[in-house]
Simulated scan of single mutants.
Amino acid sequence: MDKLRALELFIAACDSGSFAAAATMCNTDPSTVSKAISRLESQLQVTLLQRSTRQLSITQAGNQYLSTARKLLQDLLACEDELRHLNDSPNGVLKINSAVCYGHLYLRPILAAFCDRYPAIQLELQINDLHTDVIESGVDIAIRTGFIKDSRLVAKRLSPMDFFVCASPDYLQQHGTPRCQHDFNVHKWIGFRIKETQQLQPIYLPDEQDEYQLYDLKSSHITDDGEMMVSMCEDGLGFAQLPHFLAKSGLESGKLISIYPHFRPPEIENGVFAIYPKRTYLPTKVRVFIEFLTEALAQKGESAYQTWAVHTVNHQANTESD
């Protein structure tokens, strides 16, 4: 029998004055109560209760032990109640790790509204493009592109990733619009270097049957920052293959033109994921943030199965080739 159960039976016996009454209070039998208290006395090498045929009387040592035991169990119950409250009420520090571009473009605009709704939550944000061990670093939620295969973690897809092949209107006016994938060989291309692997992001272009294929194009310029890639593209330095969350603002403002319809890579790992430690009870602060982010994405026309790109028409440029 564990020590806490023995303490519960001891306290019940002291409060009720008999093993039988204590057994009734604790939903057990009198012999179990008697054995538990005898075991405590054996461990302590003191007598806690004096037994008689009519009643129990507590010894001086028993009184001292009772006071400590009662306070211990009360403190434990209070702690458990507090923890249950913490899990039920959205409060405390919420530690979020996010990829840089997604953090700036999608998370930052919703943070003020989230804090207004949940003022008892304090945010701690880590914005970087490096792999983070969610469990070792104590992160509550990581927002990452690409699926992380780790049995200790849950990966909830927030949206797929749709890509656009973009250029600025000025670039297309000066250099013409490619009419097939081979035309890109004479155009400038802005490559994206993935910080984690130091590999260039693969480029997909449609073939003559409008099937997207992997192409090995020489990059004229390379950057490892997504927002810098967008700026370079808007400034006319060449074409760039941009994920939907990076392309959105430029396409809406007219600073960028997509020369093909959006493309979604076929890999099952494709997407933006909310990643958090696997546990029996998900903290409320984590749950409400994921729900809030999901609501914000829905307002953009995004869900686990689609992005806003599905509602766009082909932005193909009408600029004629030189």
Rank of each mutant, 00 (worst) to 15 (best):
G191Y: 05
G191K: 10
G191A: 11
F192S: 03
F192G: 02
F192N: 05
F192K: 11
F192W: 10
R193W: 07
I194T: 15
I194D: 12
I194C: 12
K195A: 15
E196I: 12
E196F: 07
E196V: 14
E196Y: 08
T197D: 00
T197F: 00
T197I: 01
T197L: 02
T197Q: 03
Q198E: 13
Q198S: 14
Q199H: 08
L200N: 12
L200A: 07
L200F: 06
L200W: 07
Q201E: 13
Q201N: 10
Q201I: 01
Q201P: 11
P202R: 05
P202C: 04
P202F: 03
I203P: 01
I203T: 06
Y204D: 04
Y204C: 03
Y204S: 03
L205I: 00
L205E: 00
P206G: 00
P206A: 02
P206N: 02
P206T: 02
D207F: 01
D207V: 00
D207S: 00
E208P: 09
Q209C: 11
Q209F: 13
Q209G: 09
Q209K: 13
Q209P: 09
D210F: 07
D210E: 14
D210M: 09
E211Q: 15
E211P: 08
Y212T: 05
Y212M: 04
Y212E: 03
Y212G: 03
Y212R: 08
Y212A: 04
Y212V: 02
Q213K: 14
Q213R: 15
L214H: 11
L214W: 11
L214F: 11
Y215N: 13
Y215L: 09
D216N: 14
D216W: 12
L217F: 10
L217W: 09
L217V: 01
K218T: 14
S219D: 10
S220F: 03
S220Q: 09
S220A: 09
S220P: 02
S220L: 05
H221N: 13
H221L: 14
I222K: 07
I222G: 01
T223C: 08
D224E: 14
D224K: 12
D224R: 12
D224A: 13
D225C: 14
D225K: 15
D225H: 15
D225A: 13
G226S: 07
G226V: 03
G226P: 12
G226R: 07
G226E: 05
E227Y: 12
E227D: 15
E227N: 15
M228S: 14
M228F: 12
M229K: 13
M229T: 15
M229C: 14
V230C: 06
V230E: 08
V230P: 02
S231L: 15
S231D: 15
E234A: 13
E234R: 10
G236I: 07
G236L: 02
G236T: 04
G236W: 05
G236Q: 05
L237E: 01
L237N: 05
L237D: 02
G238K: 05
G238H: 06
G238N: 04
G238S: 04
F239T: 00
F239S: 06
F239E: 03
F239D: 00
F239M: 04
F239I: 02
F239A: 06
A240F: 09
Q241P: 08
Q241V: 08
P243N: 03
P243Y: 01
P243A: 00
P243D: 02
H244N: 08
H244I: 09
H244L: 05
H244Q: 07
F245Q: 09
F245K: 06
L246G: 06
L246R: 03
L246D: 10
A247Y: 03
A247M: 03
A247I: 06
